[in-house]
């Protein structure tokens, strides 16, 4: 889909921020761009989003519908978040009511605190970041460009963001994001590019363009009979994350280990509350959860 060939960028007569960058982004890809502060991540994303023109080289195949979330979202003074989303939806060609409904739905999912009719500038950094995220998803994007989307978001919004990324990729859109924390990029991206010295090198990752299939397993003590035996879930192979929610234990298990984990649970007299396929993400949707010892 999107192809960068020998892209270089410098501002005025300054140093080269990017040099000889070759990159290819196809539909369904989730790619991370990793690099330190000032390594040119934002510049690369601005070039991908079509906001900046490369000094040398070329970018081709940019899709029409792009969602862009800048690293710093400074809102226009006094407009309310819902009205802002409605206006931006209209600019993208939606009807006012459709834009309003969609914006409302997105803010609901991101659980915006501070009121959707309050002026944007009264929102905290994290909540403003949620509005920035919502505006990029008003129409399902073919290319979603996120500049440090995790910074400022709380734990529950992390989960929702991972869901959004999964949904865009599932609909055939490509996602490119930056972060300086390797842990985050490894859990969320299908592939990664490392930026250093203005040059880009592909880095590890599962270059399959997809997400790891995961299973979410919810266990509880059986309603009657003997109580189950405690298991060290975080030490069980395949368990990526475990948390306690009320009386239930929520496990996130890699697909290939799901059967073994399920068998262990049943052997220890746990009762299965639910078993669902899930996207590859680190945090839980509900967010609240202590690790099970």
């Amino acid at each position: 889909m999107l192809r960068c060939e020998a892209v270089g960028k410098r501002y005025g007569g300054g140093r080269w921020v990017l040099r000889d960058v070759d990159m290819e982004v196809s539909g369904g890809d989730v790619l991370a761009v990793v690099g330190g502060n000032g390594s040119g991540k934002s510049t690369l994303l601005r070039i991908l989003a079509g906001l900046s023109r490369p000094t040398t080289g070329s970018v081709s195949g940019r899709p029409p519908r792009i969602g862009y979330v800048p690293d710093r979202f400074t809102a226009p003074d006094r407009i309310s978040s819902l009205s802002y989303l409605t206006h931006l939806g209209r600019i993208r060609g939606m009807s006012a009511s459709a834009a309003r409904t969609r914006g409302d739905h997105l803010l609901e999912r991101l659980s915006l605190v501070g009121g959707r009719n309050a002026a944007l500038r009264t929102l905290s950094k994290g909540n403003a970041q949620k509005v920035a995220l919502a505006q990029a998803l008003l129409v399902p994007p073919d290319l979603l460009v996120l500049d440090e989307p995790w910074s400022g978001l709380d734990a529950s919004a992390h989960g929702v963001l991972a869901e959004f990324i999964g949904e865009v990729a599932a609909q055939g859109g490509a996602v490119v994001f930056t972060d300086h924390r390797e842990a985050i990029t490894e859990t969320h991206a299908g592939g990664a590019y490392v930026l250093g010295d203005g040059r880009v090198t592909p880095h590890g990752g599962r270059h399959t363009g997809g997400r790891l299939p995961m299973v979410e397993l919810v266990l509880a003590a059986p309603p009657a009979g003997t109580p189950p035996i405690e298991v060290d879930w975080s030490g069980t192979p395949g368990v990526v994350d475990s948390a306690r929610r009320g009386g239930e234990i929520v496990l996130r298990v890699a697909r290939e280990h799901a059967d073994a984990v399920l068998l262990t649970a049943l052997r220890h007299r746990w009762s299965v509350v639910s078993l669902t396929g899930a996207a590859d993400e680190a945090g839980f949707r509900g967010g609240a959860g202590r690790a099970v010892r």
Binding site: G50, P70, R72, F73, T74, P76, A132, A136
Partner: peptide, 16 residues
């Protein structure tokens, strides 16, 4: 002058 750069970027991407 109302819009600073990140914000104008969002409008530019939205408008195409």
């Amino acid at each position: 002058g109302l819009e600073d750069q990140p914000h104008r970027s969002i409008v530019v991407v939205s408008a195409g």
